[in-house]
Amino acid sequence: MAWLPPPARPPRRRRQPGRPGQHRPGRRPRVPPRTWLRKQAGHPLDPTDKTTHGELISWLDRQRCLDGQGLLDAARVSELDALGTIWSKHAGAWERGYAYAAAFHHQHGHLAIPATKKSDGYAVGAWMRRQRKAAGLTAGQAAKLDVPDEL
Rank of each mutant, 00 (worst) to 15 (best):
R12W: 08
K117A: 07
L60W: 10
R30T: 06
A91Q: 14
T52W: 09
P47Y: 12
G68F: 02
A91M: 12
Q131G: 00
K50E: 08
R27S: 08
A93R: 11
P148C: 05
W87F: 13
L66G: 05
A135S: 15
A91P: 07
S58E: 15
W59G: 02
A41R: 06
E79G: 02
Q69I: 06
Q40F: 03
R19F: 08
D49W: 10
W87Y: 05
L137M: 13
G109T: 02
G26C: 02
E95G: 08
D61Y: 14
R9W: 10
G26E: 00
R24V: 09
G70I: 02
A143T: 07
D61E: 14
A101G: 08
R129V: 06
P7S: 07
H105M: 03
R129S: 01
G54K: 06
E150S: 15
G92A: 03
D46S: 12
L37M: 15
K117I: 04
G136T: 13
D61I: 11
P5D: 09
R96H: 14
P25T: 06
H23T: 12
D49V: 13
P29I: 04
D46I: 08
H43Y: 09
Q69L: 10
R76F: 08
V124Y: 03
Q131D: 00
W87K: 09
A123G: 02
L151H: 15
G125L: 01
D67H: 14
R132L: 00
T138V: 04
R38F: 03
A91L: 04
P44K: 10
R96L: 11
T85D: 04
W127P: 00
E95L: 06
H53D: 15
A8L: 14
A143P: 00
V124T: 05
